[in-house]
Design a protein around this nucleic acid. Structure first.
Lengths: 238, 238
DNA sequence: GTCTATACACTGATAGAC
DNA sequence: GTCTATCAGTGTATAGAC
């Protein structure tokens, strides 16, 4: 008996990724512009496919179809699947780090942590695919960006922990472990991207509305800021 | 020129999964016992491999090697890779739901939420592989357990939200959105499993010690319970 | 820079002896 | 119930015409 082989539990992926290919800019372009244009096209498509299917489940064919290019062209711009993946992950990491800026510019915990939550929630909303790729990469023991974790991320975390400790020492918040506070901030905000499907399902199969996103941000900020002993007067305007 | 093909960014997986195969019980066994024994062996191995490599990156060969069985035997016990995966995911879901019991048995928010955090943190610690498989499944839009999300999970969540609302209505905690509070609990506790590698890296490449796990639990409970307005006297014994 | 055709490796699954 | 050998399908990557 011939049995049809189930391609992958992620058979939904193909449906989701259906639709018109990403549109190209129709202007006449120089070679350099063509390269930039196509690399961008491929990276955007790759991010979505890697997010939906994981590295192993993603195929160059799926990415090519979504980008509207022949499969061979992908290998012209990126030598291997892994190189393409690596570029996707690095791009996410940049966005992720960028959200840290609001942290430093702040005058105190209410402003700094509040703004950081807002920024990370916006990332979860605007870059859900990127967040998922990042999560997947870390879950699989960071095979391609371990060096970043050990250098950039460690530095970033150390700096932010010192800042939080300073806020504690000057009596502007409770003496909580800065490390676990950071993890809580990462976890809570990232959850809305990584587990977005679960959240949507629990929301009656509908994406969160503008109001609901706003409500989520406010709720998270209230609980955490109050939880670390920031005076309620300092974040009454949420 | 012949180029060696990079097998997968998860090349670390093979190393990690190395070591002596899971030991079998050497007693003489009945056929039924043999079946139970081997199914258990396969499921444990599969959980690890699926967690480390994702569904697409996992291979029946890797699972077989880790279980110490020939590849063909896996197909004897589980007809397809997907069937095996499905069983793994369902097992996780049961553990996950089980943690809910402590929630209901509680007399109020301090006890209920505190115990739930403890229970979920223990799951993250004792079943990190399972947690990762679950996270991966949801991130990929739950291709095999969507029906569970729509039925069991929705029911569970609705019930717990009502309980929290009751606590609010009786003035035992602040009027926060129960939905987002639940998400925060899930996110924060699950983070210690799913992002365990990142946490380890930030901990000097060492797993969290007993003390550190305890510290994490305490820190999370303090922030959240205080954040939702539970009187500090009610959780002073953390 | 684009794209068709194809090489080569690997994986899930099965057949069939023991 | 166990296990070796093997098949068929799919995937990455490349060659080479345009």
């Amino acid at each position: 008996m011939v049995k049809v082989r189930a391609p992958h539990p992620d058979h939904t992926v193909k449906k989701i990724l259906k639709g018109p290919p990403l549109s190209k800019d129709p202007r006449p372009l120089s070679k350099k512009e063509i390269r930039q244009e196509n690399e961008k096209l491929i990276l955007v498509a790759a991010e979505k496919v890697f997010a939906e299917a994981g590295f192993g489940g993603a195929t160059m064919q799926l990415i090519a179809d979504l980008a509207g290019l022949p499969k061979a062209n992908l290998h012209y711009y990126f030598p291997t699947k892994e190189a393409l993946y690596r570029q996707v992950v690095q791009n996410i990491f940049q966005i992720w780090l960028q959200a840290a800026d609001v942290f430093d510019a702040a005058s105190g915990p209410a402003e700094g942590i509040g703004a950081y939550i807002d920024a990370k929630m916006e990332i979860s909303r605007r870059h859900p695919a990127g967040s998922k790729v990042w999560a997947s990469e870390v879950m699989h023991r960071a095979p391609v960006i371990q060096d970043y974790l050990e250098t950039t991320l460690v530095d970033w975390t150390t700096g932010r922990m010192k800042l939080i400790q300073h806020w504690i020492d000057t009596g502007r918040m409770d003496p909580v472990d800065p490390r676990h506070l950071l993890y809580m901030l990462w976890a809570t905000t990232q959850h809305y991207a990584d587990f977005g499907h679960q959240i949507e399902t629990l929301n009656g199969a509908k994406p969160l509305s503008d109001e609901q996103w706003k409500g989520a941000k406010t709720c998270i900020k209230r609980i955490i800021l109050k939880g670390i002993g920031v005076s309620e007067a300092d974040f009454a305007d949420l």
